[in-house]
C-alpha cells in the first residue's frame, strides 16, 4: 500500500518586510496507513507550517505533497486538521460545533447530530452538548475540537499540539484516551508536540525536526509495546530513547 501522506523535498519560505524567513528546507517523510507519527521540534521551527502545507492552506515553494500515493495539488478538505488553538465557533453550542464538518459536506443537520450524539459520551462531552464553548474548561474544549476533527471522517488526522496547553494530569488522561480512539478508528495520525515523552508515549515513530529552517534530523522507531500504558515511562528503553531524542534536538544529556 502506498503511504497515506508523503512529502518529497518540500521547502517553504515566507516573505515580508523585505525579509525572507525560511521555514522548511527539503523535508521528506512518509506516513503509512494507520500509523501514529509524532513530530517534534523546537518551537518556531516550522511544525505548524508543515501542517498548513499538508492541509493545503499553503503551497510548497519546492517539492511535492502526495496523498494516497498521488500528487495532490488541491488538498483542502481532504485531511482532518486540528489547529494549535481549539478555534471552536463561539456562537455555536458544543454539539453544533462538532457537526460542522458533516454540515459542510452537505449531510443534513439531523443526521449529523445523531452521529455526534453517539460519539459525545466517548469524548466525555454528553453533559455539555448544549453549552457554549466559553463555558468549557481547556480540557473539554480540546476534546470538543478533537471530536470535531474526527467528525471530518478523514483517514488522515493532523493534530497540532493538541494537549500543549493542558496541565500534566489532564494531558496524561487525554493521551490514553486518544490512543483508545485511535485503536478503535485506526486513522493515520500526524501529531505535533514539543514534549519528548509525549512523542514517545504516543507514536509508532518519532520525526525530529531541526530549528528553523526545519529539516528532518532523525526518524526514530519507538521500541515500546502496544497497548501503551502510563508507567511505561519507567522502562529502560523509554529512558534510552528519550536520551536519543534529546540528543537529536541538540540538547546535551
Amino acid at each position: 500500500m502506498p503511504p497515506k501522506v508523503e512529502l518529497i523535498g518540500v521547502s517553504k519560505a515566507f516573505h515580508g518586510d523585505g525579509l525572507t524567513l525560511r521555514a522548511l528546507d527539503d523535508v521528506s517523510f512518509a506516513a503509512a496507513p494507520g500509523e501514529f507519527l509524532t513530530i517534534i521540534g523546537p518551537s518556531g521551527s516550522g511544525k505548524s507550517t508543515l501542517f498548513n502545507l499538508i492541509v493545503g492552506l499553503l503551497q510548497p515553494d519546492a517539492g511535492e505533497i502526495r496523498l494516497d500515493g498521488q500528487a495532490a495539488p488541491a488538498r483542502l478538505g481532504r485531511v482532518g486538521y486540528m489547529p494549535q488553538k481549539d478555534l471552536l465557533l463561539p456562537w455555536r453550542s458544543v454539539l453544533d460545533n462538532v457537526t460542522l464538518a458533516p454540515e459542510l459536506r452537505g449531510v443534513t443537520r439531523a443526521a449529523a447530530r445523531e452521529r455526534a450524539r453517539e460519539l459525545l459520551p466517548l469524548f466525555g462531552l454528553e453533559t455539555f452538548a448544549d453549552a457554549y464553548p466559553a463555558a468549557l474548561s481547556g480540557g473539554l474544549r480540546q476534546r470538543a475540537a478533537l471530536l470535531r476533527t474526527l467528525m471530518t471522517e478523514r483517514e488522515v488526522l493532523l493534530l497540532d499540539e493538541p494537549f500543549g496547553a493542558l496541565d500534566a494530569l489532564t494531558r496524561r488522561e487525554l493521551q490514553d484516551w486518544l490512543l483508545t480512539l485511535w485503536t478503535r478508528f485506526r486513522q493515520t495520525i500526524l501529531f505535533i508536540t514539543h514534549d519528548v515523552e509525549e512523542a514517545l508515549y504516543l507514536g509508532d515513530r518519532v520525526l525530529v525536526l531541526s530549528a528553523r529552517p526545519a529539516r528532518v534530523v532523525k526518524t526514530l522507531t519507538v521500541a515500546l509495546p502496544r497497548p501503551r500504558r502510563q508507567g511505561l515511562q519507567a522502562l529502560p528503553e523509554f529512558g534510552r530513547q528519550v536520551a536519543e531524542l534529546l540528543e537529536a534536538l541538540g540538547i546535551a544529556v
Binding site: V55, G77, L104
Partner: peptide
C-alpha cells in the same frame, strides 16, 4: 482569520 483558515482547511 484563524477560524476562516480552519473552515478553508475543512473544504468550506
Amino acid at each position: 482569520p484563524d477560524l476562516v483558515a480552519l473552515l478553508r482547511a475543512m473544504g468550506a
